[in-house]
Amino acid sequence: MSRDVTLAGVRHAFVEAGTGRRVDALAGIDLTIAAGELVAVVGPSGCGKTTILHLVAGMLTADAGEVRCGGTPVTGIGTDRVLVFQDGALFPWLTVLENITFGPRAQGRPLDPALLDALGLTGAEARYPKELSGGMRQRVALARALAVDPDVLLLDEPFGALDALSREQLQGVLEDAWLREGSGRARKTMILVTHSVEEAVRLADRVVVVSPRPAVVREVFVIDAPRPRDVTALGEVRRAIGRAVREG
């Protein structure tokens, strides 16, 4: 089952480590992500994009405004909304298979065996995270999140640290398995934070541009093109998004 996510007038400030100053990260975010929709959030670095994901994940609490998932206010961390961390946050003491089985095991459910194949991890089950390339690590992170079959998948620059080729491959994996019509899987609601306009245009149904800190939603672009997309053919919208990001 897919669920929608809404943020209404969400404000958040954090206390800066060291100086003890209060820094406004979000200054009233209004955003609705429909059930089964993939929304990309782009904006300058350090603008609070990650804060949005942590609020939806329930790892942070809004100072004002409301975050709802499927109509219910978000009050804490839950397996219905799973975050894929920027660096993967894999458990280094567990093998690939054990990492992926972590969630199902905690919930006393079996692992969907098709997942390993879908993410190209067959054959790597017994390896430890430190033995993996960056691209493989992010595949495991994605598989681990998908293994608990969340309604909402939160992606925090999951391909940000990868080389161009791995990045392209992983975008393809996500696209093939969870975005294309007739892939046989129910589409999940996804929020993708990225600094790559190209990635946003390739994967998202809508691209939300947020301003520099304190962040507000600056502009929203609808990407209405069939998948798989030829990003070079979407030059116009890419340039428009790029302009919106630069102008903040």
Binding site: A57, T79, F85, F91, F102, A106
Partner: peptide
Amino acid sequence: PPALLSAARNLGERRLLLRVAVPA
């Protein structure tokens, strides 16, 4: 790393001490 504890809770694990803090 706090991210490992958050990730484990996010995946539905409650026994954070045993399953995350000790091995980490």
